[in-house]
Structures are given as C-alpha cells and as structure tokens.
Nucleic acid binder design. Structure first.
Length: 897
RNA sequence: GCGCGCUUAGCUCAGUUGGUUAGAGCGCUGCUUUUACACAGCAGGGGUCGGGGGUUCGAAUCCCUCAGCGCGCACCA
C-alpha cells in the first residue's frame, strides 16, 4: 500500500456529506452515553445540554431552522470536542392550533369537508397522519444539515410521555391552586371558534370613522357603535373639572339606541382626560379594560355579541346580524335619532387578529381554565437563586427572579428589558382551547351533578389517570372537551424530554421496580441506624445504574424523610432525584423489620434497640398504616445530569412563548431554571429585508442550497457575522462565497497530503522517522507558527465560551484561508521541493500538524468537509491514529479540541 | 404614549471591556493560467464609522441631542 493517498481532485459535496453523516450516526457519538462507553468522553465530564426548540409539524424546514440548528450544532460540537458530556435532544412540536388549522384547510381544499363532517375521532386521525408525515420530512431535513442530535432520545410534544407529563403538570399546578376554572374575559376567535392567548394576537391598523354619540348630557366617542347597546355606565376621570358636577354612583335616564336606559356615573382614573371628550361608556363583556373596571366596581355585564359574531337580542331589530352588516345600519339609526352629532372620518384604530390564521378577535367573557400568575404558593423544593425551598412565591416572581438574579443569562442582554416589561403586563393565562387537536384537559365532570346544577364547572375531577366514573356517586362522567394551549406543553419541554415524570416509566411490570425494593431495604436500614446515608449496592449494578444514572454501586447518597408526601434522595452531586407517588407496593416498614432484622445486621444495634427505635416512632407507624406502601418517583438520570440545560437558542420572537413558559414551568414544578443561558437569534430575511415565507413567494430551500453548495457552505454563510439577536439578510451569493471556502479547505488539504515525503530506509536509519504528538520543529519560524495556532485556538475558544459564534467562525475562516493557506503553505513550498530530507519532513509535519489543528477549529462550523479530510488523514497516517475499542478509527467530531 | 434596536466601503454586515494604518463576504480595477485551488493567487481602489455637541491623552466604541428607518409593548374609548 502506498504511503500517500491523495485526495480526489474534486470534492463531491453530496456524496461526502451523506456518507459522513451516516458514519457519524453509525458511530453513536451523538449519544453521550456511547461517547462515555467508547472513552471519547470521561464519565466524570461536565455535562453540556441543549434541548432543541422543536420545529412545528406543520411545515418543512426553512432557512430560519437551518440558522438555529447550525448555531446549536456548532456549540454542541465544540463542547463535545472539549470533552464535555454533550447531549442535544431533538424533537418536533405538535403546534395544536397551527396544525389543526392547516389540516382543516387541506381537508376543505381537497374534500370540501369541515372537521365536523369527519367527527372528532376521524379528524384527529387525519391530523396525526399529517403530523407523522411532516415529522419524518423535517427530521430528514434536519439531518441533512449535519446536526449532531441524539436521535435515540427524540421526542414529540404530543407523544405519550409528553402527554403523561402534561397531565402530571396540570394536576400538580391545580393542587397548588395555580390553575383554576373561572369566567373571565378572553380573546375569542369567532372564525376558529376558540380562545387564544394575549400573545397570539396580532394588531392591525385600520382607518375607520370615529363616531361621537350623544349619551344623555355627554358625548362619547366610539369606533364600534355595535357594542354600545347595553352601555349603562358612563366613566370619567375623578379630577376632570368639566364633569365636577357629576358624582360617582349618580344615576340618570337617557334616550339610547333602542329606547330609554338608566345610566350610572363612574369616576375612575383609567379615563384619559385628553382623549375625545374625556368621557366613555363601557362594554365589559367585550373589552378587557372595561371588564377590569367592572370587576373593580362590581358592575353588571351583558353580552352583546355571540360566539359566531352575531348581535344578540339586546340589539333589538339588529339582532342576528353580523357586525359588518349591522354597523352601517346602526349608524344610520343613530343619525336619524339625532344621537350622532359628529363623525371623525380618519381615525386610526387597531383591530385584534388571531395571528394563527384566524379571524378578528372578539373579547368575550367565558368560563375557561386559567393559570394564575399572581397567586402565592409554597415552592417545596427550590434551586432558584433568591427563592428558598419552602418559601412562598408566585409564578410571576419565579419568572422575574430567575432572570433578575442572572441565574438565567440572556443574550443579548437587551432582551431582559423586553422580558421584564412583558412580566409587568402579564395577566392570568387562559390555557383552555376549543380545539380538537392538542392535549386534552385532564379533567372530568360528574354527569349527574352537571345536570343537577345546569353547569359542569363545579367540582371538577382533576386526575392524571383517565376517570371512568364519579368517585363520589359512582355515576358516569364526561371529560372536559377542551384541549390545552400548545404553549402549555412547550413550557414543559426542557425537562419532559429529559424524563419527567419518572412515574410513567415505572408503571410497567418490569425489572425497574425491583431496584426500588432493594433501595427500600436500604432505606429501612438507614432509618433504623439513624443515618441519612445509604450505600448503594453492588449486585444490582446494571439496572440500578441505568435508572439511577449518577448512582453507582458503592456510592453514598443522602436520604431524607421529608413529610408524608415527599421523600428526598440526593445524589452525590446533590442533584435531586426525588419524590413519591403511589406506584409500587412496598413491604411496609413493619414487614421489612420482620423480614430483615433477623438476617441483616445493623451495625451497633441489637434487636432490642431496633424494636425500641420502632416504638419511638409512632408517626412512622401512622404513615405506614396510612399508605401501607412505599413509593418512589425517581428522577430520570437524564434529568439529573442534563437539567437545567446549558443553552436555549430560540428566535427572539419566541421569548414569551417558549422562553417565558419554560421558565415558569421548570421553576414551579422542578424548582429549577430550564436553562442557564438563552441566546436569542434573529430572523433570517431576504435581500429586501423581508421575512422568508411561502406566501410572500420568496421562500428559499435550505436543502436545495445544501445540495448545490454543501451544507457546510450553508452553515458557514448563516453563522459568520450573524451577531446574537440581530436579523440576518441572506442571499445565495453568500453561500457561494463559503462554498469557495470549502473548496479552499479541500485543496489546501490535498496539497498537504500530496506532499508527504516518502522516506527511504536510509532516511529512517538516519532518524527521520515518524512524528509523535509532542513533535516540535527545530526551525524557530515554524515553532512560531505552531504557537500562533495555539493562540488562535485560545481566541476562538474564548469566543465560543461567550457564544460569540459569529466571531469564532470568522476567525477560524480567516486563519485557515489567509494564514494557513496563503502564508504557511507558501513558506514551506520550497522546503517540500528541496532535496534536504530532514527539512522536507519537518516542513511536511509542520503543515500536517497545523492542518489538523485548523480542521478542529473549523469543525463546529463546517463539520462535513473537516471530518472527511480527517478521515483521509487518519487512513494514511498511522502515527496519529488511535482506534476505538471496536477497532474503528476515531472521528474528528469526538477528537480532543 | 413607553421601551428597544439600527444608521460603518457600491451592496449585506462584523467590530467583544474606548487604545496602534476601521474588518469580512459579494462587487470593482490591474496583473498572473506558476505542478493545491481561476470556486484561485498577487497587487490595488474604495469609508471625515447618520448629523451636531460633550467626556478623555485617545471615541465607530461612553454621555447628551437631532434626524431617518425598523421592531416590541401598551387600558386612549
């Protein structure tokens, strides 16, 4: 076999990238457990984890995803190479409302049917089918970019485990009093027939006439006369001199649209004295501000518009009409009645539109489920800075404190301000949706009781498990028909992907529960010995190791009896893996006592002492009587190891949807932050600065670009110069530019390889043999070049640590092209062509050493080509090549940075 | 209305805590087809860093102010 193997002169992007990705997947290195197994990562290594903000199953991969994935992949690859235990969890999002709307549209377009024509069950089957197809497309696309996600841990926001988690979360928050059912004003979309959250509203400006109506002695302004039928409160500022003579609570009669009404004067500072006449009437049923006001003064509320957007009987002759139809007619009537003294034609008004492709939002008072963001509750376990375990807090406080304390770092920092401002304006979050597709609300109602009271809102049965009959009367029940806001499950994403709750994994009749029994024994023994320490046991190593993650046989762990509902077990790193659920029947303490006191020795204790110990703990007796079983809900080892995650990298438009909700749930349910750093990226825009979208027709397919120029080139073009949080203008010429760069990498590497000197036996005898890892050139100039590489590595490392990928990538780029290729190669050409074998070898080794170093620095950004070159180097240069345990060559992706 | 961001080479954008001749990609000009690479090399042109004021030995960078553009939030009926 020849000592040199040249690289082919042409770099076949598609062939190489597909082959290399398969090689990576095959190696298992995407999975940190396998990295540890194969010795690429130390089992003691610090973890670094990212949970992918999952793409919607509604669509295909777009350039924004490519951007986001590239940033994360670069970080993951960097940290993996640095030796961290690196986990990147992939997944997809069911995106309830968006997906349902999409499938409904397809259904209408292709079969001219509505979802009601199919029925709930069949419709949901169609949605799932659509989601599944879309999912596999997205995954294929994501892989094409070279993302090093651990596919063995792939999740879906609507799979069974996530459903378990959603139920669990709902129940726990309900039990804490943080979820309640109530009649409050919500955003109702008459088109999609569902509520939506405040954050899903898109405001559109409209120029409409502003009508001044005569309301008794006052003039009031409105852009929506159709809502005014029921107005019986007239509000003004308490300090408004113009209306001094009117007193709060004063009543008077006036002629109104459909006849005389009695109005009451309300004085409140919400009124802007400078606007219009400084007087307004209110419509509490269809306006959030008016609703708040009427709550404050306990005013009557009346519905004017129904859920289909039609006027109700209160509108008299206009009843049954749609708003658009009724408005001109109402205006006409007002005119003829002389109640319309003035019209201001050009008034800029903003209407609320459902941003998920819905209709014009009409606020309505409806009975819905809400998350109370202001209610105080006890946070049992807290790892949050500034909130102690057992302390009272609120969800808002958790949202604020975790970021204010810098426990969560935001990049760029300016988003903190946006975030805090959002918190200040945050109202209770309506989480129920009248959609079919989504996590079903885990609440049941007793049918008999509902009928008796004419409403099902009272006495909800909130349960993690399905409920088949009423626990009190045994009669039939019905499940709440609503589904949960998709952002509810999103908020649980960071930790449910890592294995919360453990409960669902324990219920099966398999060996997992056996471990617990063993631990129960140990716990018992510890209790008897009056210690909090438990030594885990050998003999159950395989399985206990698996489910306890950090715990190894012989590890000492802390155990604490907290209260009847919670026992806590701390791992050696003091990560909590805790808690309690009725899962597995345990022998009672008493039985254990009987069974084990005879056979096990409790050092330093006699049987009498143990019996005495037992007698002295009546509380424990109670507890055993009461429960009779011992149950542990254990944290998944992934959760203990990888949560809080290290980094979250969403687009800044998701700050409220993903980021805030994740903080809220991880804080309240785990007492942890969901991530340590959130690094926002901008939106990828086209040359004109427009967002890429299918409807705008400027769509650009990242896969097409990858096929044409290589995923490496695409990645590079997205990452260089894209400062965190800033939008990127993107066009193909940029990709072409970085394709040229990959060609440069290829050619420079080729040059190095084709100049490997062929040593004769005589050369070897003269000591001109093989280089080693600590090889150093004698030439000072070459030593300086190696030093320079080390310096660059340090600079790039520093940038990466600060998530300044745009700077790191540019530096690596510049170094490779303009230092290595342009200068260093040129400097060494003469030596390579000369006759001095020693000089030749030194020149070559210098180049190869620097090439290897540079490939490492580039690998996070252009993983394919660097890996390909590395593989060829390894194939030909045995002196550098170590093999894995299984005899395979190591990969650049798992090399030491 | 409140808040945030942007304004740097013809175009798109970097510029980390203020510190030597302000950088990159694309584009432009000239030369070069020299056995890694024309998807290239070498050489070059091009910026009073939006305007004005201030702090400083020193400002693209910090402060004030003005202008243009963009975005987020908000209870102006």
């Amino acid at each position: 076999m020849p000592e040199n193997q040249e690289l082919p002169s042409r770099y076949d992007v598609k062939e190489v990238e597909d082959r290399i990705y398969a090689l990576w997947e095959d190696s298992g290195y995407f999975n940190p457990d396998i990295c540890v197994e194969k010795n690429a990562t130390s089992s003691e290594a610090e973890p670094f984890s990212i949970v992918l903000p999952p793409p919607n199953v509604t669509g295909t991969l777009h350039i924004g995803h490519a951007f986001e994935d590239t940033l994360q992949d670069a970080m993951i690859r960097f940290e993996r190479m640095r030796g961290k235990r690196t986990l990147w969890v992939p997944g997809t999002d069911h995106a309830a409302i968006a997906t349902q709307a999409k499938v409904e549209k397809i259904l209408w377009d292709t079969e001219h049917k509505s979802r009601h024509d199919l029925g709930r069950e069949e419709f949901l089957r169609r949605v799932e089918q659509f989601a599944k197809e879309s999912q596999s497309t997205i995954i294929r696309q994501v892989k094409r970019l070279g993302t090093s996600m651990d596919w063995s841990r792939e999740c879906y926001t609507f799979d069974e485990k996530r459903n378990q988690a959603v139920r669990e979360a709902f129940k726990r928050l309900y039990d804490l009093g943080l979820i309640y059912r109530g009649a409050r004003i919500v955003n109702w979309d008459p088109k999609l027939q569902t509520t939506i959250s405040d954050d899903e509203i898109e405001w559109r400006e409209e120029t409409v006439p502003l009508y001044y109506l005569r309301y008794g002695p006052f003039q009031i302004a409105t852009a929506r006369p159709e809502t005014k039928f029921g107005d019986k409160y007239v509000v003004m500022h308490p300090e408004d001199k113009r209306y001094e003579q009117y007193k709060h609570g004063e009543k008077f009669e006036l002629e109104w649209i459909n006849g005389p009404v009695v109005a009451t004067v309300i004085k409140d500072p919400v009124v802007d004295m400078a606007f219009g006449t400084g007087v307004m009437t209110i419509t509490p049923w269809h306006d959030a501000v008016d609703f708040d006001l009427s709550e404050r003064y306990k005013l009557e509320k009346e519905q004017i518009i129904d859920l289909q957007g039609r006027l109700l009987p209160i509108a008299g002759e206009f009843a049954g009409m749609k708003i658009a139809e009724a408005r001109p007619k109402i205006v006409e009537k007002l005119k003829t009645k002389g109640l319309l003294p003035k019209i201001e034609e050009k008034y800029v008004h903003r209407i609320a539109v459902n941003s998920r492709g819905g209709g014009v939002v009409e606020p309505q008072i409806l009975e819905q489920w809400f998350v109370n963001v202001n209610k105080k509750f006890r946070l049992e376990h807290s790892e949050l800075d500034g909130i102690a375990s057992g302390q009272e807090t609120t969800l808002k406080e958790i949202l604020r404190q975790t970021v204010a304390s810098d426990q969560i770092k935001m990049m760029p920092e300016r988003f903190r301000k946006t975030y805090f401002h959002w918190i200040d304006n945050l109202r209770d979050w309506c989480i129920s949706r009248q959609l079919w597709f989504g996590h079903r609300i885990p609440v049941w109602y007793c049918k008999a009781r509902s009928e008796e009271r004419g409403a099902r809102s009272d006495n909800p049965i909130v349960s993690i498990e399905d409920v088949s009959s009423c626990p009190s009367c045994g009669g039939p029940v019905e499940q709440d028909p609503d589904t949960l806001d998709t952002w509810f499950s999103s908020g649980l994403w960071t930790f449910t992907t890592l294995g919360w709750p453990f409960l669902s994994q324990l219920s099966g009749p398999d060996s997992k529960t056996w471990d617990l029994k063993i631990y129960g024994e140990d716990i018992f023994r510890a209790l008897v010995n009056g210690t909090k320490r438990i030594e885990t046991r050998a003999g159950k190593a395989e399985s206990s190791d698996k489910y306890w993650g950090d715990f190894k046989p012989g590890d000492v762990i802390d155990f604490r009896l907290a209260d009847e509902a919670t026992d806590t077990i701390l791992s050696p790193e003091r990560k909590v893996s805790k808690v309690v659920k009725n899962v597995q029947h345990f022998p009672t303490l008493k039985e254990m006592f009987a069974a084990y006191s005879a056979t096990h020795d409790y050092p330093g204790k006699t049987t009498e002492q143990i019996e005495d110990w037992w007698r002295k703990r009546p509380a424990l007796h109670d507890r055993i009587q009461k429960y009779g079983i011992w149950v542990f809900e254990l944290a998944d080892p992934d959760l203990a190891a990888y949560h809080p995650t290290s980094l979250m990298a969403p687009g800044y438009e998701l700050i409220f949807f993903w980021v805030a909700r994740m903080i809220l749930f991880a804080g309240s349910l785990l007492g942890q932050v969901p991530f340590r750093t959130v690094c926002f990226h901008g939106i990828v825009r086209d040359k004109q600065g427009k967002k890429f979208s299918k409807s705008a027709g400027n769509g650009i397919d990242p896969l097409e670009l990858s096929d044409k120029y290589g995923a490496d080139a695409l990645r590079m073009s997205l990452i260089v110069g894209a400062a965190p949080g800033n939008d990127v203008k993107f066009d193909e010429s940029k990709v072409r530019g970085y394709r040229n760069f990959t060609t440069k990498i290829w050619n420079a590497s080729r040059f190095v390889l084709m100049n490997k000197p062929t040593r004769t036996d005589a050369d070897k005898e003269r000591g001109l043999t093989q280089m080693t890892d600590d090889w150093q050139p004698r030439s000072e100039a070459r030593q300086a070049r190696l030093k320079e590489l080390a310096d660059i590595r340090q600079e790039i490392t520093a940038h990466m640590e600060k998530y300044e990928l745009h700077l790191a990538s540019e530096k690596a780029y510049h170094y490779f092209w303009h230092t290595f290729a342009d200068k260093i190669i040129e400097e060494n050409k003469a030596a390579l062509r000369g006759d001095d074998m020693a000089e030749k070898i030194e020149a070559y080794y210098t180049l190869e050493t620097i090439l290897r170093g540079a490939l490492k620095l580039l690998h996070p950004f252009v993983p394919f080509i660097t890996e390909e070159v590395w593989q060829i180097l390894a194939r030909n240069h045995a002196e550098y090549t170590r093999n894995d345990a299984d005899g395979r060559r190591p990969m650049l992706m798992a090399e030491k940075w």
